[in-house]
Design a protein around this nucleic acid. Sequence first.
RNA 1: GCCCUGGUAGUGUAGCGGCCUAUCAUGAAGCCCUGUCGAGGCUUCGACUCGGGUUCAAAUCCCGACCAGGGCGCCA
Length: 608
Amino acid sequence: MRTHTCGELRADHLGKQVQLAGWIRFSRDHGGVLFFDLADAYGTTQVVYDPEAMSREENRESLERMLKSFGRESVISVAGVVRNRVPGTEDPRNPTGHLEVLIEDAELLNSSKPLPFEVADQKGSLLPSEDLRLKYRFLDLRRTQMANNLRFRHRVIAAARRALDDQGFVEVETPMLCRQTPEGARDFIVPSRISPGTFYALPQSPQLYKQMLMVGGMDKYYQVARCFRDEDSRSDRQPEFTQLDVEMSFVDDRDVQKLIEEVLSTVWRSIYGRELKTPFPRVTFHEAMHRYGTDAPDIRYGLELHDVTDIVRGANYEIFKRILSKGGKVECMNVKADLMRPTSGDESAVGRNEVDRLIEWAKSQGMGGLTWMRMTPEGLQSNIVKYFPREVTAALEKEMDAQEGDLLLFLAGSEIAALKAGGELRRKLARDLRLTEGKDHQFVWLVGCPLFQKDSVSGQLEAFHHPFVRPESTDLEGCNLNCLGGLSYDLVLDGSEIGSGSIRCHDPEVQRKVFRLLGMSDEKIDTDFGFFLEALGYGAPPHGGIALGIDRLVSILLGCDTIREVIAFPKNKKFQSLMDGAPAKVEETKLSELQLLCLVGDDEDDAC
RNA sequence: GCCCUGGUAGUGUAGCGGCCUAUCAUGAAGCCCUGUCGAGGCUUCGACUCGGGUUCAAAUCCCGACCAGGGCGCCA
């Protein structure tokens, strides 16, 4: 159907008879000469109809009529000769821009209805609303941006596969129809027809299966695995998503991290053609929370938090006094003068109006407000500095290394609230002041996370990551469980968690103890995890692994706002596929076959 | 479950109490044009999400619904 693609023709094809096929992106009718930009997945080639160059007079009229009838996104094939363009009319932006194909014959392979939005890239054309793009995703995918995104994603995955294959990893597929896991995210449930009244769950991750593969002696496993979680959507969350899932035997945490650094280095070489700096910096959970106010720190800029609680204790400032009396903390951030005026010219980009806006923002974040002081030649100044004795402001200046023009921002509240708000403030300022513009991507290992955390409502211990993390110490009776660490590690990229892994419990007794501490009865443990503990009892090797979120990784590398931009057929915020209408009702007979009753009638109001 | 933002021709937008019979661009349909490449020129078509309310007067203000997105909770 074609001899070449639309991105292929070069100077050495000149004079050759070729046949191209593709979509008409643009057409230009000059009253006689007709130009078409013929596009396919590989590029765009200009094909031209020139009536004066037509030799066979008898075909001329019908060919001309046909060509003039072609609309945008019509699919055509053309036959003709490759020739140079008229001197001075070359298009240097296009690799095929110095030549064109002179149409001798053409065929309409398929016509296109008028488009719901523009597919061709045009200067100044804005994207249509996302629901329209999702409804017509097949058209959206024709846009070069989307096509490039998917190709980029493919190259990332291909490079990762190559790296893992080189290291002797085996890609193994694990079931999509699983047993429901008791904790964690909500499962998607699939009814069994053969065993009425029972249900499979779609996997939240292949966690247990990959551990079983280690027990099975597979030694090095990986999978580009689809995972399913029925939790509410975010811009970086979809009900189904893809993980690069890895597990290996006879390793410690450093071995897994080293492997991932190697995999990502291969990705870097493959897509950027340069080396990735390894090993990645390691930040402990404690350090991340106290310096950056988050467990997924972006360390590409400063704005670090300082605990100034003890310093401001000497102040007569009612707001701080009230919070301190309740055991709260005061966190301080120094917005250095040079950060505040790189982009927007003369005056400080964080003037009084902006500070007022930050105060409003802090209130919207659930803080009581935000206190500020600006460093001047006369020392710290602000509306409330009169409540701070000179020795307190002096100590603040020293602790925060305040130089002239610097802005100190204070957040006061319970320790966790102050830190979290500080983390949010950091992110907001980084965004507003464009602190990451032009900066390289930065990976960080987050290590030393606690094994457990207390549920804020029930007070019950719950797993910080998941219940399969090996505790730092196996003496679970003799230690403070609130401080007990796990052998886990998160991979953070530019302030987003893109991976999480750990060394696992391979000793069934340790694993059972962890389950018990999580509040599970022995009966429940045996029902839900009996097979798992049983397996660990048959000589499970020490093992560990990690899973990288491919959608997040790729979207961050591409600078996309949401992971939907790197997923061919994503769902909307309500988990609907606007293109095919999923989820949808099924016929009554299908339900009876599954022994299911639907409590929601045809009329929405009938819902119980 | 909650909070925030937004809904104007097919698409993207302007308008934000009367100058609205609603702007501009793009598109679609038609005509002109023999070297363009977002071709150009001319003509035509085509919209205020829905329901209440305030007002002499509502695209504009208020309330509610619906739809979309962002976030909180949730996501072991």
